[in-house]
Every structure is written in structure tokens, then in C-alpha cells.
Simulated scan of single mutants.
Amino acid sequence: MPIQHLSHLTFIVKDLDRMAQFLCEGLGAIEIYDSQSQHFSLSHEKFFSLGSLWIAAMQGDPPAERNYQHVAFKIAEHELADYQARLEALGVEIKPPRPRVEGEGQSLYFYDFDNHLFELHTGTLEQRLARYSRDKA
């Protein structure tokens, strides 16, 4: 049986309330669960709904270092500036975009408060492959 779809993403964070603020105010997620003192998993956790995606945040020791490993969410290009303003209002570190070729979409890269890198991207896989194939012809 093939994999059906992505089930959820889990992020280990130092401060669950700060992550909730980041996800809800910054990205528009909805908090749907808080384990409070009940630990069904490894530690205190909260669940969020972002679009059709389930995101879990668990209290613990986040990554010690930053790298390029990231999660990218698809958005419409006209929404990019609004998201950037919302994230900047929270004090989120926005990274300069990487060099791009025309036709592969625009991106906004930013770190949460626990060294996780996120991207908001306006393009699609199909657009990127079509653009890259033009250089092969």
C-alpha cells in the first residue's frame, strides 16, 4: 500500500506558548489541543491546524544549531508581504532570499524562536521543473 499523504509535523520547542504565538499569529494556524499536565507522548505538547496540516509542538530541547533543513508552505504571491509583516511584528528573524531564476517562484525564509527554518513559497514543483528544463534545451 503506498503512502497516502503527510500525517503531521512535530517541532521540539523550548516555549510552547511562544510557538503557539508564532504559528497562530504569524502563520494563521489554529490551536486545537493542549495536553497541559497530561503527557500522552514524551512531554507537554500542543497541536495546531494549519490549512489541512496537523502540526505538533512538544516541549523539549530544540536544535542547537541552524541549518538549511526546512519546511516550506505554499502561498499565493500576493500574500507574501502580509505574511512578512505579521512575522516581523512578532520579532521573527527574516532571512535574505537565496538567488533565484525567473519562473521558480518567490520565497520568504525565516526562523522560529527555536532554530527551525521555515519557507513560504509561491511556486509549484511543476513550475520549477518547467523552468529548469528550459535551460536543458
Results as ranks from 00 to 15, higher is better:
31 E>V: 15
69 Q>I: 06
45 E>N: 15
71 V>R: 06
55 I>R: 08
32 I>L: 09
53 L>M: 15
74 K>T: 06
101 V>A: 01
111 Y>Q: 03
73 F>I: 08
94 I>L: 09
82 D>K: 06
96 P>C: 02
106 Q>S: 12
78 H>A: 08
35 S>D: 09
51 G>P: 12
74 K>P: 01
114 D>R: 12
111 Y>S: 03
55 I>L: 13
51 G>K: 12
97 P>Q: 02
53 L>N: 14
48 F>P: 06
82 D>A: 06
114 D>K: 09
109 Y>M: 05
64 A>P: 05
64 A>D: 07
84 Q>A: 00
82 D>P: 01
44 H>F: 08
79 E>R: 03
117 L>R: 15
47 F>P: 08
34 D>E: 13
35 S>I: 10
53 L>A: 15
88 E>V: 10
67 N>E: 06
76 A>S: 00
73 F>L: 13
116 H>D: 04
41 S>C: 10
94 I>E: 05
80 L>D: 02
101 V>C: 01
51 G>T: 11
83 Y>M: 03
41 S>F: 12
51 G>N: 12
41 S>N: 13
38 Q>R: 13
43 S>T: 14
30 I>K: 15
34 D>C: 13
49 S>M: 12
80 L>V: 00
33 Y>P: 14
63 P>A: 07
97 P>E: 03
53 L>D: 10
101 V>Q: 02
61 D>T: 15
113 F>V: 07
61 D>G: 07
58 M>W: 11
72 A>F: 04
67 N>W: 07
58 M>N: 08
30 I>T: 15
66 R>A: 04
103 G>Y: 01
46 K>T: 13
79 E>S: 05
37 S>D: 15
89 A>I: 06
43 S>C: 08
57 A>K: 09
63 P>F: 00
95 K>H: 09
64 A>E: 11
85 A>N: 09
82 D>S: 07
72 A>D: 01
106 Q>N: 10
58 M>S: 14
42 L>F: 08
114 D>E: 10
34 D>V: 13
33 Y>C: 12
88 E>M: 09
93 E>N: 08
69 Q>S: 07
40 F>V: 10
75 I>Q: 05
80 L>Y: 00
84 Q>C: 04
114 D>S: 09
116 H>A: 04
92 V>R: 03
53 L>F: 14
30 I>P: 02
63 P>Y: 07
115 N>I: 12
94 I>S: 04
45 E>T: 15
75 I>C: 03
92 V>S: 02
54 W>N: 10
39 H>S: 14
89 A>K: 12
72 A>V: 03
45 E>V: 15
65 E>F: 13
83 Y>C: 03
89 A>W: 07
92 V>L: 01
101 V>T: 08
